[in-house]
């Protein structure tokens, strides 16, 4: 039997011409047509990668996220998660504990009435022994620096803290990959920083694959690779430097580059000797001083 990809490579996710269509109905409930939310998307993600998926509202990025954890199944094409076919309904629980999801609204994903119960929810569902659950809850809360709040009620936490608890709740499943669907969209700048710092630490220290879906450009400069989606298609991909070197192309896809990158780009256009794809303020200042 030929496996869809080789064993031993660190490949975690591979999709080939993934398509997702849903039926659109008119006011009377009659079928009005099909909507292609994802249009022939091919992806390859390795264990330990930090991937960012960018795209305007309605570009299909959240729909793609829901496929990665088998909440939605492909209409056409294939999607393999850690060697498991996402269309195989026997594998659904294995896939869901391999790829964890964190969603946008922190209030709508809290299940427990206190923090540690919420974190314990997934391992409880997996039927893990109480002592082991306790262990996992503790280590997950330590990882996101929330152990001090283990007995707190989620409603008393700030947005950034709630989102970190949500991340801990996923970590307690010991996943290989975490997909975060606009985790900072509802947070203030302090909360954003907390969450991004926690995500980066997971990737650096625990080598967990991160797939960050966002339209906040400042958050993606640390990613290993960026995919840009628009109208269900994968329209750009590359390292942050490569993608941000094309501000005009990003704008065509209703996105914008970070302020620093834009300033660098315009200075370069005006004739200054500044390299393409500058990402941080420090880089820009140094480039200006050198020129």
């Amino acid at each position: 039997m030929r496996l869809p990809f080789c064993i031993g490579c660190m490949e975690l996710i591979r999709s080939d011409k993934l398509v997702f269509e849903y039926v659109r109905r008119d006011k009377n409930g009659e079928v009005d047509g099909f909507v292609r939310a994802i249009d022939e998307v091919s992806l390859e993600i390795n264990q330990g990668d930090f991937i960012a998926v960018l795209g305007p509202n309605g570009s299909g990025k959240s729909t793609l996220a829901k496929h990665l954890n088998s909440i939605l199944r492909p209409t056409e094409g294939t999607l393999y998660i850690d060697g498991m076919d996402s269309a195989d309904s026997d594998k659904i629980w294995d896939i869901r504990s391999t790829v964890g999801m964190v969603f946008q609204n922190p209030e709508n994903q809290m299940i427990g009435t206190i923090v540690e119960e919420d974190v314990a929810f997934a391992p409880e569902n997996l039927g893990i022994e109480p002592r082991e659950i306790e262990e996992r809850v503790k280590e997950s809360l330590i990882t996101v620096e929330m152990l001090g709040h283990r007995k707190a009620s989620p409603s008393k936490l700030s947005g950034g803290q709630k989102q970190r608890v949500a991340i801990a709740g996923v970590l307690a499943m010991h996943p290989k990959c975490i997909v975060l669907d606009e985790p900072t969209a509802m947070l203030d700048p302090v909360g954003r920083k907390e969450v991004i710092r926690a995500i980066r630490a997971l990737n650096d220290v625990e080598n967990i694959t991160i797939i960050l879906i966002t339209h906040n450009m400042e958050e993606v400069i640390y990613a290993d690779r960026i995919y840009v989606m628009n109208k269900g298609r994968m329209v750009m991909s590359g390292t942050p430097r490569e993608v941000f070197s094309k501000p005009e192309e990003l704008e065509e896809n209703h996105l914008a580059v970070p302020v620093v990158t834009r300033l660098a780009h315009e200075l370069r256009k005006a004739g200054m000797n500044i390299p393409e794809g500058i990402l941080t303020r420090k880089e820009l200042c140094e480039a200006i001083c050198r020129s």
């Binding site: 795209g55 305007p56 946008q104 969209a185 509802m186 339209h215 209703h254 996105l255």
Partner: peptide
């Protein structure tokens, strides 16, 4: 502008 994409914000 909370929660909107760059175009929506603009």
């Amino acid at each position: 502008c909370a929660g909107l994409d760059p175009q929506g914000r603009e």
